[in-house]
């Protein structure tokens, strides 16, 4: 109500010259107000984002102190050389790629397939199933890991029979058999991650107007054709968004391989993923320049994926509504 009256008042004001300087003044007070409102966030952004990146760049360009030469100082790109020529460097990226090759397709098929199934089940059954699929997502991180220790340890696993059938008697055998780790990580991450993405893609499906389905039904489309030719093309942006987010997620793998190594009596490589390697540079070798260089490499990769997500998904640019 106040809005309407004020609107009338503001439109009835003639538009003479002084308006411009007043507009300018209001513009600068708007800028001042904006920065004042932004200031707590900017401080946290500096502490939690900008300053550490800047400091990591500075650290990466230093030379690490050694027992013979305890001084630090400018070292150029030597730390990047240390990282690139480390015997584990290429392996860690190969491991991540090996995991992504198995995990991403399964994850995407699972997300889209289950979201379509839920969307084809209106009413309480569909929403109950969506809730059930979401539950494992609540067991994030370490809790999901302990659950998987329970599943992977043949000694007390509910799938004990399965482990014995494939000749596995200890958790060490289950985890450390050659080539097994990408599959186990796939299972762990699928279990934990699929539910929340089903909710996202399902949200996209729910946004499709009903008349599209009515038109397709009039054309004689059955449930399969509806899913394949109508729903799937429409939710393509959501699928792309989910795929890229999960791709970026692959490069941060740390907890699962690190702790699986711990429960498998160190039978796994200690540095299996890039993040583990960066952690080892910092906390085993105390080579901070190399650790900084490693995290900058990962930062550039995930930043590239992040920019791709932001510009391709339409997150950025819808602000003028």
């Amino acid at each position: 109500m106040t809005t309407a009256t004020v609107d009338k008042r503001s439109t009835s004001v003639p538009v003479p010259k002084p308006q411009r300087s007043r507009a300018k003044a209001s513009r600068s007070s708007e800028t001042r107000g904006a920065w004042l409102l932004l200031s707590p966030y900017v401080v946290l952004l500096l502490i939690g984002g900008i300053v550490p990146v800047g400091y990591a760049i500075k650290t990466a360009l230093e030379k690490p102190p050694t027992p013979l030469d305890p001084s630090t100082g400018f070292g150029g790109v030597a730390s990047f050389k240390t990282v690139f020529t480390d015997y584990r460097f290429v392996d860690t990226f190969q491991n991540v790629l090996a995991t992504l090759v198995i995990w991403l397709p399964i994850m995407m098929v699972g997300i889209v397939g289950l979201a379509l199934l839920i969307h084809a089940s209106p009413g309480r059954f569909g929403s109950a199933m969506r809730f059930v699929y979401y539950i494992p997502g609540a067991l994030a991180g370490i809790a999901n890991f302990v659950l998987w220790v329970y599943l992977l340890n043949p000694g007390q696993s509910p799938i004990e029979g399965f482990w014995h059938a494939i000749g596995v008697d200890t958790i060490k055998q289950a985890v450390a058999a050659p080539g097994q780790l990408p599959f186990i990580l796939t299972a762990m991450m699928f279990f934990q991650g699929v539910g929340s993405w089903i909710v996202v893609v399902n949200g996209g499906l729910n946004g499709i107007p009903d008349d599209i389905f009515e038109a397709a039904a009039l054309d004689g489309a059955n449930a399969w054709q509806l899913a394949w030719h109508v729903k799937l093309p429409i939710i393509r942006p959501w699928i792309g968004y989910a795929a890229l987010m999960n791709l970026a997620y692959g490069f941060q793998l740390f907890l699962e391989p690190q702790l699986l190594d711990q429960v498998a009596s160190n039978a796994l490589p200690d540095q299996w993923t890039p993040t583990q390697l960066g952690y080892a540079f910092a906390f085993s070798n105390y080579n901070f320049p190399a650790a900084a260089a490693m995290s900058l490499i990962l930062l550039v990769i995930t930043l590239g994926i992040g920019l791709l997500i932001v510009f391709r998904s339409g997150l950025f640019g819808e602000e003028d509504n």
Binding site: L38, L45, I47, G48, G49, V51, P52, V53, Y55, A56, T59, M245, A248, Y249, F251, Q252, F254, T275, G278, Y279, A282, F288, A291, A292, M294, S295, L298, L299, T302, L303, I305, G306, L307, I309, V310, L315, F316, E319
Partner: peptide, 25 residues
């Protein structure tokens, strides 16, 4: 637009990539 872009990009990036730099800080 710059602040919005930084917010969106940091939102979609996995936060673990900054942990080592944060530790150094």
């Amino acid at each position: 637009r710059a602040v919005l872009l930084i917010t969106l990009v940091t939102m979609v990036m996995p936060n673990t990539v900054l942990v080592i730099p944060l530790f150094l800080e």
